Amino acid sequence: MKISTPTIMALLATLFAVSSGYTQLHTLPIKSTPDLQAYFHYTGNGKQIISGHRGSYIAGYPENAIETFEYVLKHTAAFFEIDPRLTKDSVIVLLHDSTLDRTTTGKGRLADYTWEEVKQLRLKDKDGKPTPYRIPTLQEAIDWARGKTVLNLDKKDVPLPMTANIIKKNNAATFVMVTVHNAKQAKFYYDADSRLMMSAFVKTEKALKEYEDAGVPWKNMIAYIGSENKPANKIMFDLLHARAVMCMISAAPVYDKLPIVQERAASYRDIFVQGADILESDYPVEVAAAMKKAAGVSDVASCLNCQPP
């Protein structure tokens, strides 16, 4: 029997993947701006989405590292909140703190180092142990994320016009979104590019009205409503869901700090039960496992469409 060349190539690719330990990434189904807006559009069907806070921050994998993003996507679909900052020579890199000490082998302020100097440093994991990984540039993260996931750029020291420009230069509005802390910032980005998706701080009814008065369409936003899972959130859930806006809770400051895995899992499940649509966490793989257990499914990635228990 003659085997066709395409079949042989497929078999070789499979053998290579097995022998090299390659694991297929769970990518997001987003190819265009309408896809992005539809993915984050609230419909009431119980869709639950995971956001990796700074990617993730676990043993062996540092925050704000491309290798960490890869690790997460090997286990579950997710998008990533990341932290762009400027070096001394105005290269945009990913680093949460203004100083290097906590997460890298360097010391002092990032702003005192050039990119060439920063490249020599290595990132630390959550236990403070150096890893083989270095600080990436935002450009490298954008290049990596295309066709895989969505990046949510937090607001640090990079000027808004500079952020808007790098997104425009890369034609990346289909998979790069921006965090905005108020309606003024949202209006700037919307005027710069009406396609941009934003993660907006909408913690109060007053803030909600300010966004509406600014004329920024809700289809361009998800709403961050805080870090506490409390009954009072229902007011904002109802107001935002009525506008087809997904609501996000961040577990990082509170529930990620719980010392026991089972306690964290229970808190993650309850955040969705109480009405959140998006959960941001330092432990996105744990969140996926908690969702999987609640839904009784075998595939973690399919939990992105799980119904709440």
Rank of each mutant, 00 (worst) to 15 (best):
A77V: 03
A78Y: 02
A78R: 01
F79H: 05
F80C: 00
E81M: 06
E81I: 05
E81V: 04
I82Y: 01
I82S: 03
D83K: 12
D83H: 08
P84H: 06
R85Q: 14
L86N: 03
T87H: 15
T87E: 05
T87W: 14
K88N: 08
K88W: 10
D89E: 07
D89A: 13
S90Q: 14
S90F: 12
S90G: 03
V93E: 12
V93K: 06
V93W: 10
V93A: 09
L94N: 04
L95V: 03
L95N: 14
H96D: 03
H96E: 02
H96F: 02
H96G: 01
H96W: 04
D97Y: 12
D97K: 06
S98N: 08
S98K: 08
T99D: 10
T99P: 08
L100V: 01
L100Y: 08
D101G: 02
D101M: 14
D101N: 15
R102H: 05
R102E: 02
R102Q: 05
T103K: 10
T103M: 09
T104M: 05
T105Q: 07
G106F: 12
G106K: 11
K107H: 07
G108N: 09
G108D: 11
G108F: 14
R109D: 15
R109M: 15
D112I: 15
D112K: 15
Y113T: 00
Y113W: 15
T114W: 13
T114I: 03
T114C: 02
W115M: 10
W115L: 13
E116C: 14
E117D: 14
V118H: 10
K119M: 01
K119R: 11
Q120D: 07
Q120I: 08
Q120N: 06
L121W: 13
L121I: 00
R122W: 02
L123Y: 07
K124D: 04
D125T: 11
D127I: 08
G128L: 08
G128R: 02
G128H: 02
K129S: 13
K129P: 04
K129M: 04
P130G: 14
P130N: 09
P130S: 09
T131S: 06
T131P: 01
T131K: 11
R134P: 04
R134G: 06
R134V: 11
I135P: 14
I135H: 13
P136N: 01
